[in-house]
Design a protein around this nucleic acid. Sequence first.
DNA 1: TAGTATACCTTGATAAGCAAGGTATAGCAA
DNA 2: TTGCTATACCTTGCTTATCAAGGTATACTA
Lengths: 126, 126
Amino acid sequence: MTSEKELMAASTSLLVLATLNAEPSYGYEIVKRLAQNAKDLFQWQEGTIYPVLHRLEHDGLVRAQWQDAEVTRGLKGPRRRKYYYITAKGRRALADKTAQWNLFHSLVEKMTGVRHGQPAGKPALR
Amino acid sequence: MTSEKELMAASTSLLVLATLNAEPSYGYEIVKRLAQNAKDLFQWQEGTIYPVLHRLEHDGLVRAQWQDAEVTRGLKGPRRRKYYYITAKGRRALADKTAQWNLFHSLVEKMTGVRHGQPAGKPALR
DNA sequence: TAGTATACCTTGATAAGCAAGGTATAGCAA
DNA sequence: TTGCTATACCTTGCTTATCAAGGTATACTA
């Protein structure tokens, strides 16, 4: 595999970037949101997501900002959240990774004989 | 990730099983065939495929058989090929893994906002 | 006062892929 | 005949991603 390994590894960072592209968020919430979108069929662990966020930040695809103390006033739990925002570079990376994913998916489709569209009896997440 | 980790790891065994489902084959040829189907955009290494085949055989999803000597007569190269055949259990596994892959893909689609069908300007392998 | 939910994080084990190398056979060209 | 290339099998060591598990701390709630 040349870039296929990154494609595999990309699925998590891809989904994290997609989450942040929709709306800024923080680690704990991203975990919940992914599980929610996947209807709990797939669940990422915190131990997976936090290192990914750190790497994305290190690579400049997202930037992090501890929220103001007053924002959390009235909320239960600790008064600290590290919000992540996708950057312009992150949006480009998201587009690239999405294109790569779709390309790889079309290979799987071709080889497994799955047709486009959603054939009857093939459930999908909605 | 619950079974998501297997889903990631599944992409290679999925494609190997799909290859063998189309037609019995052997390691060296499978590598070539995958690269060909992927138009060399993705390339699996022998060091990846052989262990996968051994694992699939160990799990009973394929069975292996050294070919007869006469079959290779006239061919260049060594007179030995280890042909792999998909089993009934392998076909069930292929169906399962394909369903899992499609489920996961629908999550990616949902989160990246990609619609079904092939939107204009989104190239795919044909 | 104890439990639960929120929110951050790290560590050690497991597993998959890759690059690189190794062995061997046979055709073909110099 | 000598050496290159293609075929065909395989293993080893490194890297990297994920997970399970644990740790810290805050604040609401029973």
